[in-house]
Each structure stands twice: as C-alpha cells, then as structure tokens.
Design a protein around this nucleic acid. Structure first.
Lengths: 386, 386
DNA sequence: TCAATTTAATCTCGAAACAAGAAAAACATG
DNA sequence: CATGTTTTTCTTGTTTCGAGATTAAATTGA
C-alpha cells in the first residue's frame, strides 16, 4: 500500500478539508483544492473503504439535480490521545481523527523521570476507558516543556529539571502505538494551525509564554525543525546585551523578561509584596494596579523589540501569541504595537497581522492531540491515510 | 512540453550533478541521487536532444566492460548574464549554463533611476559581444542592494537613495529575455549555494556586510522569501535597545554597528583621523592598530549576539559570513565565537559550523549569475530543463 | 404521472512516469 | 575469438492524473 508522494499529498489535503468543514461535499472539495474530480472521487472511495469517512445524502438542498454527499470523518475510524506534561500535572485527552476531544483526564505528576513512562501509559489507559468509543488507538502525541531533538531525546527542560532524557525510547517501552513526542511550543503552534486561528495560514511565527517562553516557526505548511529539531527557541532570542541571567544559563534572553516567574519577581520587588502566579498578575492588572500595569507595559515593549526582529527576519503574514501572552493581550498590546511600529521595517510591519491565540488559553491541552493528528496524517513517515 | 513536478525535480537534480562534477557518468549520478537508472538515462537523453550536454567516452578507465560516458554541460547550450548593481559601478558577467564566467565588463553608473534600464541593457549587449560564444541568451539575473518584493519592485535602497522603483518592469521594457531581479543578500547566498562553500548544504543562514548589512535565509534547499519576498533582512535585527539610529529609519539595528560606514565613523571618532573605507580599516588592522582592533573585536561581539539569536532560532548546520565580514575573519572571529559560546544554547552552538565565504570576497560578481542560473533551472516558473 | 432538466459522483480510457528486468553496446582478458 | 564485465538503453508492467463520457438521483414542468 505504498502511494506516491502526490497521492499522499492529495489524500492529506482532502482529509483536512473534510475535518475542517464537516458535511462538505465532493463538489466543494474540488472547488477548494482545485484537484480533478476523478482524483477526489477515488481518494474518497478509498477513505470510505477504510472506514475513515461516512457519507450521507445532504439534506435541505432544495435544488434540482443529484444531491451532493455530506462527508464527515467517521466516529469509529480511530482514536488519538494527546498528553500534555506540565510541572505537577499531566493532562490526557482522547479524540477521534477529527481532533474533537471526547474525554479528558488529569493527574498529578511529581516529575520523576523514572515514573514517566508508566505514568503516561496508565493515563492513556484511563482516558481511553473514559472515552467509551470502540475504535483502534492510532496515535499518541506527547507535548513536553523542553528542548527535544529529532531522535526524541529531551535535552533540557528547566521547568522539570530534566537533562538528556530519551523520552521517546522510554515511552516506546510502555506504549506500542505510533508515538509522537514534541516540544510544547511546536505542539501549541501545530494546534493553532490544525484547530485554531491559523487554519489555512501556511507561514506564521508562534510565541507563547508560561513558566518559560517558547515558540515555533511554522514555515511553508509545517513546523521548521532545523538540523537537530531544536529550531524555534524564540524564548532565547537576545533582547538585552549583558542582560538578566536566564534559566537556560545564558543572559539577556526574552524568557528572562517575559516568563511568569520573571514578571512575578519584578512586580514583587517593586511592590514589596509577594506575587507568585500569573493569575495574580492578571487580577492586579484587572484592578489597574499601577506597578503591575507598568511592568506589563514594559514587557510588551521588550516583546515588541523581539517581534520586530522576527518580522524583519521572516516577513511573516502572521505572528501569533499564546499562553500568558494571549491572556494579557489587553495590557501588553499597545506597547507591543508601538515598539513594532518603531522598530520593524514599515513595509513588513504593516503586512503582518498580530494574533492572540484563544485556544492556547481555553484549550491548552490540544497540543498533544495536534502532535498525534499531525503525525498520523502527515506526509512523511507512516500515515493512516491511503 | 509540460512535465510533472517529480520529473522537473529529477531533471534539476541531475543537471546540477553534471554542473558540479563535470565528466561525471550516469552510473555516478545514479549512485549519488538514488534515482533509477532508466530515469537518469531518459532525462539525459532529453538533455542531449536539447543540446544541453555533451557526452564523450571516458578515457583512462582500464577495466573491463562498457566504458562510462563523461557528461558535461555543453558550451553551446546557452548563455547567462549576471548584473551586479552597486553604488557608482555596475558589473556585468556572462557565463554558460555551467555558471563559469567567460566575460566580464564594468561600467560606472551614476545611480539615476531613469537611466537604469538603458544602462543595464547596454552593459548586457557589451558583455555578450565580449563573450564571443554563439549561443542563445537564456536568462539575466540582476542583483540590487535593496529591499525587493515578490513583484520585482525595489521598495527601499538606502545606498542608492531609491524608493519604490519597479525595477523588474523597468528592465523588462528594455530586455526581452527571462529576467530575474533580486536582493544582493539573497543573490550572494544563492551564489554560495551554487558555486561556493555551501554546495550541498540545504539549510544555512547567510550574513554579509558592505555598505550595509544584509542576509538571507536558505531553508530546505531554497531562499525563504516570506509573504512579500522581504524575508532575510538580518541587517535589521535589533541588537541594542534604544540603540544607534540606522539607515532604515529604525534604531538599534545590527547594520548600524557593523556596516562599513558605521565602523569608519566609530574608528574615526576614537582616533581623531578620518577613516573612509573598509580597505583602510583592514590595512590598519593588519598593522595591529589598537583602536581598529578594539572596534573590530567589539563588532565581532555584537555580531555574535545576533548570531546567537539566529542559532537559537534556526538550529542551522551552517552560518555563513560574506563580504567585509569574511575579509575581517581573523579580527572578528575570536570575539564572535566567544559571544556565541556564551549566548547561544550549547547544544545548538556546538552543532553549527561558522563559515567565512571566499567567493563573496574574490568573486562578488557571482550573485547575478546565481540569480539567473537559479531562475532558468528552477523548479517553479518556466525552466530551460525538460 | 412521467419525461426533461440539472447537478453530483463515478467510470473509462489515454498519456506520462517510474521501476524492474532484459537486451545491447563496448571494452578487457585469456 | 569466446567469455566475462560494466554501462547504457530498451521493453514492459504498474500506477496515477486528468479529460470526457456515463450513471445516479433529485427537481421541474407538461
């Protein structure tokens, strides 16, 4: 069952057409993609033979002619599990091949390397039971907060305190399904592309903030990995020469100025009290507490300087912000835009849209699912598509 | 004669195999590319039919069996002209499809927009006469020192003082051959990939310095253009918050610290004399003049900070330096490497090779030829390959 | 009710391309 | 001069895309 590259390309495109617009007809797919009708028909016939899609006559189209089909990803076609490992807690989500979550499960996790594999395997088991759907598990995506290379080795995760952990190998020992392990920034960017505001956007730069600052380069329809898979560490762009020491061991990084811990420290120092969480910062900012507002404004300006460099580098149509950056949109956006206007090349800045991610705030658990869906439908490696 | 994408991909790969290793045999191409022997044979037969290659029996192979063919790009197959527009002077180079220069011509150019098209057309005419080869002109590449968008409009060239000049349209009015217009940084990076030290390197970041600092992102086998074709303006990475005013109108750009004029100003101010050219700087540095050495060292450190950001962003196998940066290798490299070691993520820094371009110093005129060759053999748009 | 019309999806068939194998070409060796 | 070796070309089978013909399933109107 070895298909040519173009065939897989077509299949992939058509699959995502159906996923994104359920009840779509072949006619609409032909218009949208520009593929030939016979190509679309044959691909969908194969999808059908594999039980990947369901076809139903389309209702409520009161016009002459043969009614079009309403295509949809089958609920029975297969399951994905997304795993989001964070400090203290792990989130497990099960979904169908359409990527829509059908069950969720959270457990505490102490962060011991030795327990990771068993802990994840057990969580997957649990969430699969909860999902109550009779279908095969096709793939598992695991999003981790750290630098992960192409071989699936986690090189450094300051938040967890891990170094050089072969996570893919460890997990593969307990989990037999296809396994996709990835950095949380790249996972979040993929989620934004598959489910969020960057659907259909082939090039965008993603930045997000939480316990650290991460990012991803989404170029030409896929996340750019670089030589070892480490590209996109935008949290460690240098913004201040000889600046603050960063958790990565270097100095002057964006992360040292914008991560939640950094902002907490800064506000605490200025106010004399103890601010320990970004929730608290948002609360104080909502009450228009002056020090907090000033620190956030300052953060927006620093972020703007980094984004100006990114705009001058990539000339991207979209720069997307996720996590705490998205939550604080109202407080940082003016300073951010002002800095970009001042520092980026005008012709590029005016063409770039800034986008604050909603899903990264309200559905932060989609990263793992995105890795899994991207993995099982992807053009390289084995794919569940024909 | 519309070929499929894969066909053109194969043809392109095989063409460059022959270009890079003249006298190569089909056998060697098969080994190198992994294509099937029938594919290679049929592509080369078409090359032959078009008069693109010459085949000769390979000499001096004293072994049994049918002797292999020695393939080479035909000298009669076609001509390219590369044009390098600089302040005060324009360089014209003619070459065959192998990219080897066969004639060169330089003329003064005052920099009047109105005269550009005629000036270029006349120079092409002249260099073609000089080349003395009976072959069709297949393409012209024009490298310009400024921001050029996808439509071939030069948006801003501080060096020439031009703004919003539709160079492609202007030139197309005088020149009927396929025309490829590009930014000098991207042209130099393409040259490095086609003729220089980055042959076979599919991903590298290119930085060069001259009257300004420019760059290019060479990702996944091609220059990354971004939305409007403006990506790669690495000279305007922000390195100092609220820093020096740059020719682009913004502040704190790399270019404001590393361009030849900036270094001249800095050295002049510190020494009290007047340094006006990079040649003079190199001379003084060669004599180990302390102020000059200190300024260059400082420049290396600033460059290192920017390169550290680039390494953390792209995780590239190679960062290449051209122009004045390459000339000053000996004086900036220690500070550069030190800064990178301190600021870039160790796992990425250790994997990245720094490369100082030779061709950008000794054959700076190759940029235009590179644009032309890349254009006429490229996978998108019309191509001279079957 | 039953053609006629209209639209959607499928089927048929030719052109193009790759890949594997057979055949041919051109040389060395004994 | 036969045999073996190596390189290139030719032959054939399979796959895929795409254009046109065909079939399917509805509405419309006589």
């Amino acid at each position: 069952m070895k298909s040519s590259f173009t065939r897989r390309f077509h299949a992939n495109e058509i699959f995502h057409c159906i996923r994104l617009v359920p009840q779509i007809s072949q006619r609409d797919i032909i218009e949208k993609t520009g593929f030939d009708k016979s190509t679309v028909s044959s691909v969908i016939n194969r999808f059908d033979a594999m039980g990947l899609v369901v076809r139903a006559p389309k209702q409520g189209e009161n016009r002459p002619g043969r009614p079009s089909e309403a295509l949809a990803i089958s609920q029975q076609s297969g399951l994905l599990v997304g795993v989001q490992v964070e400090l203290g807690e792990t989130i497990f989500v099960a979904s169908g091949l359409d990527g829509l979550p059908i069950a969720q499960h959270r457990t505490r996790f102490g962060g011991q390397v030795g327990e990771l594999a068993q802990h994840v395997a057990k969580g997957i088991e649990t969430v699969l039971h909860m999902s109550d759907r009779q279908a095969e598990l096709l793939g598992v995506g695991v999003s981790l907060p750290g630098l992960i290379d192409r071989n699936g080795t986690l090189l450094h995760a300051p938040v967890l305190g891990w170094r050089d952990v072969p996570v893919l190998d460890l997990l593969a020992g307990e989990i037999s399904t296809p396994l996709y392990v990835g950095n949380d920034g790249k996972a979040a960017a993929t989620a934004e592309h598959l489910f969020g505001s960057c659907i259909g956007v082939k090039d965008f730069i993603y930045l997000f903030s939480g316990s650290g600052v991460g990012g991803a380069l989404f170029l030409d329809g896929e996340t750019y990995l670089g030589m070892n898979g480490l590209a996109g560490e935008l949290g460690h762009l240098k913004v201040v020469p000889q600046g603050r020491i960063c958790s990565c061991g270097s100095a002057g990084c964006l992360s040292a100025y914008l991560s939640a811990p950094a902002l907490c420290r800064e506000i605490s120092a200025a106010m004399g009290n103890t601010v320990v969480s970004f929730d608290q910062i948002m609360l104080q900012a909502g009450e228009r507490e002056p020090v907090t507002l000033a620190v956030l404004e300052q953060a927006g300006a620093i972020l703007g300087s980094a984004v100006a460099s990114l705009i001058n580098t990539f000339n991207p149509p979209v720069v997307a912000f996720g996590g705490d950056m998205a939550r604080a949109e109202g407080f940082i956006r003016p300073a951010l835009e002002h800095a970009i206007g001042r520092l980026a090349h005008p012709r590029m800045a005016e063409a770039t849209r800034l986008l604050f991610s909603e899903i990264s705030v309200h559905q932060p658990y989609l990263g793992g699912i995105a890795l899994a869906l991207d993995g099982v439908t992807g053009l390289e490696g084995p794919s569940v598509l024909p």
